[in-house]
């Protein structure tokens, strides 16, 4: 069974890059606090989205719109207007997390295809079944917490298509169940579509080294010459008992290449790439590398599922990865 490649686009040039380099589908968000990559300079106006959809359609590529925050009463209308806009544009699917918005979308736009966002936090078949029974969702994106075995078992119990993350930054916490960012800064993925937001970041050069702070809280300190990363708060170094280390997670990327054949065999429908905040060049490179990996996987379905992926492919992806290293994350039980 061939896996569908779902790639991120934060801008029209990134969308074109994904389309040109082999994506089967591209996911985008509208400007404003309605999606999980609410960063300055990112996301689409209605006109840009229309242009992007036209560009993708002409090349046989689908476009999904992500609206994956949990709106408060104050921004409910903005959220429902976003749904109406997506329906008007004729997007191929709407990616939602909030049950109230799902109700709105399925009542108002019954023909609009619904995907449960990773932010919907469904980690078992019964939770997915809730959204299918209530709203007729056709696909669910799984949080990055299940092992390959667990993914396979879940697929055996649900009629809903399953999409999983294949490459990109790694959330160590269950998506949709993490308030660490709002605890430190007041802004969270669930409420504002941001994690460890840039406006709360401060860099300092001190005799002890370069330091990063988030709303005043020291997230990391780097020795001279040590590579410094964005201070996503779960990837900082902290002290637990007497040891200072990456107590929650190292700055590393998820890369599922090693388990692609196993995921394909288990019936996973689509592989998602994280990174709507990334540049068009990055999106193009990652898309073409994963296209190659998926094509190799599809061309040799009977091959040894434990055969390692080509070394040059891994090396090229590592060069693009956060921290320049990768992990299988929860797909690999010992990581847990």
């Amino acid at each position: 069974m061939s896996l569908e490649l779902v790639c991120p686009a934060g801008t029209l040039p990134a969308l074109r890059a994904a389309v040109d380099h082999g994506a089967d589908a591209v996911y985008i968000g509208f400007r404003g606090a309605t999606n999980a990559r609410n960063f300055p300079g990112l996301n689409f106006s209605e006109a840009e989205a229309a242009a992007g959809i036209a560009y993708a359609r002409e090349r046989g590529v689908r476009v999904f719109v992500a609206l994956n925050i949990y709106p408060s009463p104050a921004n409910w209308t903005i959220a429902t207007e976003t749904i109406d806009r997506a329906a008007r544009l004729g997007v191929d699917a709407l990616i939602l997390a909030d049950p109230g918005l799902m109700r709105y979308a399925s009542d108002r736009h019954p023909t609009l295809r619904l995907h449960l966002s990773v932010q919907g936090s469904a980690t078992n078949w019964r939770a997915i079944e809730f959204y299918r029974q209530e709203f007729g969702i056709q696909r669910a994106v799984l949080p990055r917490v299940l092992s390959v075995t667990q993914v396979a078992r879940l697929i055996g119990r649900t009629a809903v298509e399953i999409e999983v993350f294949g490459f990109g930054s790694l959330c160590v916490m269950v998506e949709g169940r993490c308030a660490l960012s709002s605890y430190a800064t007041g802004h969270s993925p669930n409420t504002q579509g941001v994690c460890s937001p840039a406006h709360a970041v401060r860099w300092e050069e001190k005799p002890e080294g370069r330091q990063s702070r988030l709303n005043g809280i020291l997230i990391d300190r780097y020795a001279p010459g040590e590579a410094a990363g964005y201070p996503t708060l779960c990837k900082g170094r902290f002290r637990v008992n007497d040891t200072v280390f990456h107590a929650l997670e190292e700055p590393t990327s998820l890369n599922a290449l090693d388990v692609l054949p196993a995921l394909a065999a288990s019936g996973v429908k689509a592989i998602k790439v994280e990174g709507r905040q990334r540049s068009p060049a990055y999106v193009g490179q990652v898309t073409s590398l994963l296209r190659r990996a998926l094509d190799l996987c599809a061309a040799a379905p009977a091959a040894d599922p434990h055969a390692p992926p080509p070394a040059d492919l891994l090396a090229a992806l590592d060069a693009l990865a956060e921290g320049r290293t990768h992990t299988l994350g929860a797909y690999h039980r010992p990581w847990q």
């Binding site: 709106p71 408060s72 009463p73 409910w76 049950p99 109230g100 109700r103 209530e134 949709g176 669930n190």
Partner: peptide, 11 residues
Amino acid sequence: NIYNEATLQLL
């Protein structure tokens, strides 16, 4: 994750 009236009504 109940953040709004529509979700609360549904639940």
